[in-house]
Design a protein around this nucleic acid. Sequence first.
DNA 1: CTTTCAGCCTGGGCGC
DNA 2: TGCGCCCAGGCTGAAA
Length: 269
Amino acid sequence: MPELPEVEHVVRALRSRIVARQIIAAEVRLPKLIAPHSPALFNRKLKGSIITGVSRRGKFILIEMENDRVLAVHLRMTGRLIWARDGGRESRAHLRAEFRLDRGKLSFFDTRRFGTLEWYRDRSEAEPAGIDPLSASLSESVLARLVRGSRQNIKAWLLRQDRLVGLGNIYASEILHLAGISPLREAGSLDERERRRLLGATRRVLSRAIGNSGTTFSDFQDARGLEGSYQHYLRVYAREGRPCRRCAEPVVREVQQQRSTFYCPRCQS
DNA sequence: CTTTCAGCCTGGGCGC
DNA sequence: TGCGCCCAGGCTGAAA
């Protein structure tokens, strides 16, 4: 479920709670998560480590250790990474891994089991291929180079993690609406003005979403400080048939690459 | 190289 | 109440 803003929110919440904590034990209940290694080996590698930082690379949550090793967590669709001081009211039905710390514990829940855990020997292995859209190094000219020649539709292009990192299905639709660009356009066909609008809209949408702790659909999330409020500001996503918030034209839903795209056929061209 | 698409999983909601 | 379908904030690997 999470995209860049939700992952950022999780990272900030964890940072204040688990930095400087020591891992007492790591219990992996879903061996597939760390295959081909065994849960026992994984525990031996991790136990005793002091956590020195928590950061985000695209949609990956990086938990950094004092010896430069990194535990990378990807939540995919339904993953949740939650710190709790004590036992926890959370059902353990979908608990996939648990890290007992010297204070509290870190639990990884994942209903659909798409989430991943990776163990890197150092930070450089955790660098993604794509550019973070919030980084200063992404300029209009860099974006121009990235989209050049691409015949992919811009909606699908925004979801690729090897160009930009962090965008997902909700924010791709929201960004294109704010930029006034049709999701059906070929990425390589955008002119300079459109690329500027796209870049500006990307930053504005992501920043606002982060400022609102991300987007939460009520039936998806648990409480515990992980609820965002950006769902109140969505302009097209999941609003098929309802009026565009800018021009009142009904919002259209269209399937691209097997995923729903929402857009206003009047405002976006 | 680029792009598409089935597959990975589970559960909620809807129509019949 | 039950059944079958559709849908879901992600990504990969094989195929075209």
